[in-house]
């Protein structure tokens, strides 16, 4: 009965990501879109925290939003998988519900 949690805010600006991660249930996944994609980069201040979340949960980042911000070829956390919009749609179908953390 897993949830796709969608994040759209940078963790360097808002606490939304940390607030979401603190409430994940077993089997939940996280998709980063819009400004949240910056969290998928390697070597950030929150990289180790996200890597440990990634050990228990599937993490995804939306490629067109990375590309728009010049981050497509930047090194990313190993735990994060890249998806395009069709991948986003697919994730919405393979999870029972979608929860956007606004």
């Amino acid at each position: 009965m897993s949830t796709l949690n969608v994040l759209n805010k940078s963790p360097f600006e808002k606490k939304t990501m940390e607030q979401c991660l603190a409430r994940l249930a077993d089997g939940d996944s996280v998709l980063m879109i819009e400004d949240a994609v910056v969290a998928a980069l390697a070597d950030t201040a929150i990289a180790s925290q996200l890597e440990s979340v990634g050990a228990a949960h599937a993490l995804y980042v939306l490629e067109p939003d990375l590309a728009a911000r010049g981050l497509s070829s930047s090194s990313r956390l190993a735990a994060v998988k890249v998806v395009d919009y069709s991948g986003f749609v697919e994730l919405a179908t393979t999870h029972e519900r979608v929860h956007s953390w606004l």
Binding site: N8, E34, S86
Partner: peptide
């Protein structure tokens, strides 16, 4: 805000 754009791109892909 990007919300309307994201919603549109998602809709097209779906």
């Amino acid at each position: 805000h990007q919300a309307s754009d994201s919603a549109y791109q998602f809709s097209v892909a779906a």
